[in-house]
């Protein structure tokens, strides 16, 4: 269970990016976080695994306080938090298999890491997960030879290699075409239920948030202003989150068509 309370983050002396945020995620629910650019979604995720240092507040993962961890303790905590990035963040010049195995870096020794001599159990797990997402035949291909959707699958497998207790996904589909991004979203949804894994997804695409997640959290100006199921996420909520903000084309379209799509699917 992830429990965030009164989280605040400010960069330098600027207006805080996160203003006393509270959020609890339990079980294997898939939670999407929506909000305009600059609402603090990305900062929120990065505070959880401390790629960004929170200014104040508490973050607990399954009872462990994350905010005060240092050094080796922090690394031990991080390996229980998988993360998927918007730009995939693969190591382009390494093979798919090495990228996948790098998810085990928090577990294996430096010697094993450098010589690529991973335990057999890790290799089995890697092949199994790659098969699950359909990329096992790429094992010895260089990561930069894959297409965007395939690269994101590699990144998902890398995160799952960590045997995470929670999965964070920061705009995982923003760099992908619409069809591929739907595939990745449905994959994340399926994996969450298969592995009993809570997943937190930052997402721009409100339609996809409604289709693939169990719960939607709306953020604006560093605060949570909506928290509910996809069914409760109506035009009012949309206006509250995006209203008055110049939205990119894609969003504008989403706002108009979303209610219709929702009506059709229900």
């Amino acid at each position: 269970m992830l429990k965030i309370s009164n989280l605040e983050k400010r960069y330098g002396k600027n207006e805080p990016v996160l203003k006393g945020l509270d959020l609890t995620v339990d079980g294997s629910s898939v939670v999407s976080i929506v909000g305009a650019s600059g609402a603090g979604k990305s900062t929120l995720l990065r505070c959880i695994n401390r790629l960004v240092e929170p200014t104040s507040g508490r973050i607990q993962l399954n009872g462990l306080d994350l905010v005060d961890l240092r050094g080796a303790e922090l690394r031990r905590a991080r390996r229980k938090i998988g993360m998927v990035f918007q730009g995939f963040n693969l190591i382009d010049r390494l093979t798919v298999m090495e990228n996948v195995l790098s998810g085990r870096l928090g577990y294996v020794s430096l010697y094993r890491a450098i010589t690529r001599k991973y335990p057999q159990s890790d290799i089995d797990r890697a092949f199994h997960l790659m098969e699950r997402v359909g990329i096992d035949h790429y094992a010895n291909k260089r990561a930069d030879q894959l297409s965007g959707g395939e690269r994101q699958r590699v990144a998902v497998v890398r995160a799952l290699m960590q045997e995470p207790e929670i999965l964070l996904a920061d705009e995982p589909t923003a760099s992908l075409d619409p069809k591929t991004s739907q595939q990745i979203m449905s994959l994340l949804q399926a994996l969450a239920s298969e592995m009993d894994l809570p997943v937190l997804i930052n997402i721009h695409n409100v339609t996809q948030a409604r289709m693939y997640t169990d719960r939607i959290v709306g953020m604006r100006h560093g605060q949570m202003i909506f928290d509910g199921g996809p069914k409760d996420f109506n035009q009012d909520a949309l206006d509250a989150i995006y209203g008055g903000i110049e939205s990119p084309d894609e969003q504008g379209q989403t706002i108009e068509t979303a209610p219709a799509a929702e009506g059709a699917s229900v």
Binding site: Y118, I123, D124, F127, H128, E194
Partner: peptide, 18 residues
Amino acid sequence: EKPSHTVGGQSNRTWKKP
């Protein structure tokens, strides 16, 4: 969910860095 239970049963595949 099947695959996750059959991992152990699968023959061990090896991998070496090319």
